[in-house]
Simulated scan of single mutants.
Amino acid sequence: MRFAAIADIHGNDLALEAVLADIAAHGLSDIVNLGDLLSGPLNARLTADLLMDLDLPTIRGNHDRWLAETAPEEMGLSDRAAWSELEPHHLDWLSDLPATMVYAGEVFLCHGTPASDTTYWLETVSGPAGATMAARGTIREALGDVGEPLVLCAHTHIPRAVRLPDGPLIVNPGSVGCPGYEDDHPVPHIMQTGTPDASYAILDKGPRGWSVTFRQVPYRSVDMARLARERGRPDWARALETGWIDP
């Protein structure tokens, strides 16, 4: 069994197209999508149309939930920018996405943790500098009663794999379309990958269990940075150009 995992596209249709082409070049047709599909000052409508046509096994992220359930005047800047491009059928599609899913009978999909779409799982933050890997006990506790041998998560945009002793392989494939961001929860901090490339993962099941290969795919990120800057989001533009948030 072999398939690809994508996540955190955030309305970046050019990054998504590059990743889809790379996946196809590796002879893969099975793809799962871990949410946060549209939020951002980029091309939410184009991205939504592309994803709806693909009809991938998809779960919702926290931003997908907020887009579907929050009044526009209460949204943050990135959600409001995406919402302004979407039509009712796009929002209905987001509303129908499940929070979690079991794929192919043995792969558990979630956005943040199995119980929360807003909680960091494999990383922890304690200040403005960014994130470090979470403690093993914290990771295991958040697993709860999930029993699948492969667990996929997203949300932090940081590619990472953790294999728990006597437990599953937990993989975050990284972000297709947003390589860095600032957030205030749980404390003010930045997350940054240091590369503008689009990220995804390939999962393989072999005789010894599951393995993961991370892929970093170059694309026309300067074009998306230009769009973000034109729409008044220099923070997004800087991250899209460089993969860094700090100056």
Rank of each mutant, 00 (worst) to 15 (best):
N43S: 12
T47W: 05
H10V: 02
E17Q: 15
A142V: 02
H26Y: 02
L67A: 08
E106D: 15
E241N: 01
P88N: 12
D22T: 12
A115M: 04
V107K: 08
R231W: 03
P188E: 01
S78V: 00
R163W: 08
E241H: 01
P41I: 01
D183P: 00
S116T: 07
H189F: 13
P165R: 06
L203N: 01
A225P: 07
L152Y: 07
A154T: 02
F108V: 07
R220H: 11
P188R: 04
A237P: 05
I31S: 07
R136I: 02
G130K: 09
D64K: 04
I6V: 13
G61V: 05
L240F: 04
K205E: 11
L14K: 05
S84M: 12
V162A: 07
S175N: 04
T138S: 13
D79N: 15
R45L: 14
W83T: 00
D117G: 08
H10C: 08
A225Y: 04
A81V: 07
A4K: 09
M191A: 12
L16K: 05
P173S: 09
D96S: 15
P186K: 06
A154C: 09
L91I: 15
N43K: 11
P114H: 13
D53Q: 14
P179L: 03
D145L: 13
L34D: 01
P114T: 09
E230I: 05
R163Y: 03
D246K: 12
L56W: 13
L77F: 14
R208Q: 11
M1I: 06
G40F: 01
R233A: 13
H111K: 06
A131M: 11
L77Q: 11
M224P: 00
A131K: 02
C110M: 15
L86F: 08
R80P: 03
R233E: 12
L54N: 06
D235K: 05
P114Y: 08
P159G: 10
A228F: 07
Q216C: 09
G144W: 10
